[in-house]
């Protein structure tokens, strides 16, 4: 449904180059995961036509839209800063972007996104979560072939964020729309996406299901993208393992230095032969433990 073919964009000021090829299937929710500055938002803007690529092509539903203006691409966009129109009500937002204004369908969409009772309110009269829903409903109102979501929950508090992202997946799946979702939050990517792509320095370094990328990261960037990461260096190589992968009863001896609590889980800072690491472990400071770090990933140590 969405095809980005050898898409290239040089960042201003010699800050690197974005080079990406990607195919997102019809109805698929694809999450782009990566650190700030990795090129995720640039990629969305290229797909939407808000930035012209230096080279490469953008295909939507098999049509080459590279040279088409944004308004002719049939995409919906949930911007990071939402960009709601302050003088229009929620309902008017939807009616304005519909190819043929259809009040009934607009009201249906508002109902679907839990906004029906707020249809007449302007953005300034809505809460953060409600504004988020207006942005999503607006993106859907155009009957887009692709929806682009640029870190849409970053300004929300954690409770609202958690509830909304599950709702959004439901709405997207019900609408059967293809979605490219940018996030730097690995939990969000796992919850929302059918597939995940990890971006680093303008390139897609790994693409796969969330589970595959979580358990089998093919490179250090992909490993780090999912967080809760320990990285220790030995003999010119980086030894990588996640906090929650560690089990007791192995060969490696360590000493517990500190004990903390995180979301009902106990994590300990442990002194290992190659350095310190945080691991999920129910122990107390001063105790000696024997650990099994498998699966232990090995990558070439980067300078």
């Amino acid at each position: 449904m969405l095809g980005l073919v050898s898409l290239t964009k040089r960042f201003p000021g010699g800050q690197g180059v974005l080079e990406v090829s990607l195919e997102v299937a019809k109805g698929e929710v694809f999450a782009l995961l990566g650190a700030s500055g990795s090129g995720k938002s640039t990629l969305l803007n290229l797909a939407a036509g808000l930035l012209p690529p230096d080279q490469g092509q953008v295909f939507i539903a098999g049509q080459d839209v590279t040279r088409l203006a944004p308004e002719r691409r049939r995409v919906g966009y949930v911007f990071q800063d939402l960009r709601l129109w302050p003088h229009l009500s929620a309902l008017e937002h939807l009616l304005l972007v519909m190819p043929r204004p259809d009040r009934k369908r607009a009201l249906d969409l508002l109902e679907q996104t839990g906004l029906l009772e707020h249809a007449a309110k302007r953005p300034g009269q809505l809460s953060g979560g409600q504004r988020q829903r207006v942005a999503l409903a607006r993106a859907l109102a155009r009957e887009p072939q692709v929806i682009l979501l640029d870190e849409p929950y970053s300004a929300l508090d954690p409770v609202l964020r958690e509830r909304l992202r599950l709702d959004v997946r439901t709405v997207l799946k019900e609408a059967g729309v293809t979605a490219l979702h940018v996030t730097h939050d690995p939990e969000e990517a796992m919850l929302l996406a059918d597939r995940v792509g990890v971006m680093s320095r303008g390139r897609l370094v790994q693409v796969g299901t969330p589970e595959a990328v979580y358990w089998h990261p093919t490179n250090l960037e992909s490993f780090l993208a999912f967080g809760r990461a320990n990285l220790l260096y030995r003999d010119g190589e980086a030894l990588a393992f996640r906090q929650e992968w560690v089990r007791e009863g192995g060969e490696l001896e360590g000493r517990v230095l500190e004990r903390r609590s995180l979301r009902g889980e106990v994590i300990c800072r442990v002194q290992l032969p190659w350095g310190e690491a945080w691991v999920c472990l129910e122990r107390n400071p001063g105790e000696t433990v024997r650990l099994d770090l498998q699966p232990l990933l090995r990558y070439p140590a980067q300078p």
């Binding site: 911007f79 304005l96 155009r142």
Partner: peptide, 9 residues
């Protein structure tokens, strides 16, 4: 830009 992305010339 948001309006143009959503189909308005």
């Amino acid at each position: 830009l948001a309006a143009r992305t959503h189909g308005l010339a």
